[in-house]
Amino acid sequence: MEVQVIFFGSITDITLDNSVVIDGCVDINSLVQTLIERYPALANKKYFVAVNQKMVHENSKLKMGDTVALMPPFSGG
């Protein structure tokens, strides 16, 4: 089961990529674990998570084709 993960702002300094496709994660917690294994510096980073453009504040199930965004604190304006 694949989901697309997209990165923004200072997170891209860690991932060096704007997006990756991750397979086999059933929920957000397991996805974050997988991402930290791939990008260890993410563990110390503060960010918000959005699934399909909606902010999520707790663990929730993922489904095939979801887009998960990792967003550091906003700094527009």
Binding site: F8, A69, F74, S75, G76, G77
Partner: peptide, 14 residues
């Protein structure tokens, strides 16, 4: 609105 933009919109400045 200015405060809302800064707080709530996913925009980043480098």
């Amino acid at each position: 609105m200015v405060e809302t933009i800064k707080k709530e919109l996913p925009i980043w400045g480098k």
